[in-house]
Nucleic acid binder design. Structure first.
Lengths: 154, 154
DNA sequence: ATAGTACTGAGACTGAGTCTCATTATAGTA
DNA sequence: TACTATAATGAGACTCAGTCTCAGTACTAT
């Protein structure tokens, strides 16, 4: 049940290559600004709000940060998720990290990653795919968030 | 697997009583404006965005609608959820309806309810509670959304 | 070098959501 | 029925996360 039990060590060079490839495939360069945003996400290891990113990258203008986040989403490198508060959070795309879910603190909005066992995911996926297709939906993925209070807000 | 297989018929009077009680417990009256919002949610049976509510209740001013939604949330009658787009959706609180999850269309933002079998929920809850408590979280509930494309956006 | 194109920062702009305030409705009391 | 205190409401100003525009800068290729 430990999140990192059998995770491969993080290969920075391979990661960089993938990011560059995806950007170039969408007609973009892997520039300093974009790298700055991506690395902030890698370093923190948590979904970040725009103000988190501003704190981690004080030099980067707000408009550039937002623009990069949009571009990175379009290139399939970043995805946006929504907490209980009004602020969007951004994290690395699912296939660049381990598949995981979120603990969302309803009090402070903090989001923490957790990884359930593989067998759990398989069971979930089976049941849900069936439900969705019966409604005419084509499933691309799922998100499973636990809402509650984090240790410091309890 | 059918969503409504063993659901009790909707008892409007009992529902109204509960809503009134919860409002009064939070020091509020069950007035026309609040009723209007609650009934829009009941009638549609789906999570609604603010513009959905405006369409269903053309006379109701925007500021009143928002105010009522906040009050109804505080009274535990409504909860806010977030789709993939920038618009919040509002639905009746979990315990006023059947426990359910969402199919979220990543293209048009539409949200549809689905209800997995009870056994599924139990299995999910067990695994997740364990994960959360190991991180110091106190779990209050979970949300499980399927992301994909609805029939009309495929 | 030069041209064409992508990238960037600065700041104006948009619009969902909030707040304020003056007015209106309601409940309670006599 | 009149009176008072309190809650509810509509109108519109305001806030601020997120988007858009534009002029200037950096790449890339030839």
């Amino acid at each position: 049940m430990k999140a990192s039990a059998d995770r491969a060590p993080f290969d920075r060079a391979a990661f960089d290559r993938t990011v560059r490839e995806r950007l170039e495939r969408s007609g973009r360069r892997y520039t300093g600004g974009r790298r700055s945003v991506v690395e902030a996400l890698v370093e923190s290891g948590h979904p970040l709000s725009i103000s988190d990113i501003e704190k981690l990258r004080p030099g980067l203008p707000r408009s550039s940060a937002y623009r990069h986040l949009v571009e990175l989403q379009q290139a399939g490198i970043v995805r946006r998720l929504s907490a209980e508060d009004e602020f969007s959070r951004y994290e690395l795309a699912e296939d660049l990290t381990e598949h995981h879910h979120h603990l969302v603190c309803v009090s402070c909005g903090r989001v923490v990653d957790v990884t359930p066992p593989k067998s759990f995911e398989i069971a979930v996926t089976e049941v849900l795919d069936e439900l969705a297709t019966s409604e005419g939906f084509t499933v691309q993925g799922h998100r499973l968030d636990l809402l509650g209070r984090c240790a410091s807000c309890s």
